[in-house]
């Protein structure tokens, strides 16, 4: 395509309108999650999970706590035979406080935002303007559950994968 063969110099020198269009495409593609190279990580095995007993883990790195939970009913983005296993960043998207899981939802006790894990981490009450970033999961033939990527920005970062 035209834009991929253009040099930076041509690009800058191009018309304002064309430049604007190209930048827009480049921008929108570059930032839609998952736009980064996430490493796959094993979290648990299906047979170890019990309904409403969350499993804590860190993803994509040690400074980003996350929670995997089996809801016992189908959820958006759920995996497993019941499509009910989901995982989310465990930091409130509002100001980064750790979340509690109870009564089939996540609650933040700092400013009382609540997120529905069955509905894509939807903020159904509270201050958080962002839904909880959902962690994309996969399951292999032996029932191992893997984290694959984070859909949404983890609180406290401008990029989900921090430089080493």
């Amino acid at each position: 395509m035209l834009q991929t063969t253009m040099s930076r110099r041509t690009f800058v020198g191009g018309s304002v309108v064309l430049g604007a269009l190209l930048t827009s495409v480049r921008f929108s593609k570059a930032f839609v999650a998952p736009s980064l190279s996430y490493k796959r990580k094993r979290i648990a095995n299906i047979r170890d999970l019990k309904n409403h007993k969350p499993v804590m883990f860190n993803y994509p790195d040690k400074d980003s706590p996350a929670m995997l939970v089996k809801l016992g009913r189908p959820a958006i983005g759920g995996v497993g035979p019941g499509k009910d296993i989901v995982a989310f960043s465990a930091l409130c998207t509002h100001q980064g406080c750790p979340l509690n899981y109870s009564k089939v939802r996540f609650v933040c006790k700092c400013h009382y935002s609540m997120f529905d894990p069955a509905k894509n981490g939807q903020t159904y009450q509270g201050h958080a303007s962002e839904w909880l970033p959902q962690i994309r999961l996969s399951v292999d033939s032996r029932g191992n559950i893997y984290a694959e990527a984070v859909e949404g920005l983890v609180w406290g970062r401008v990029i989900n994968i921090l430089p080493k």
């Binding site: 930032f31 999650a33 994309r136 920005l153």
Partner: peptide, 13 residues
């Protein structure tokens, strides 16, 4: 699957 496009990075001023 997110229900709408989410971002996982933002530009820095």
């Amino acid at each position: 699957m997110a229900l709408f496009a989410r971002k996982d990075r933002l530009p820095i001023p």
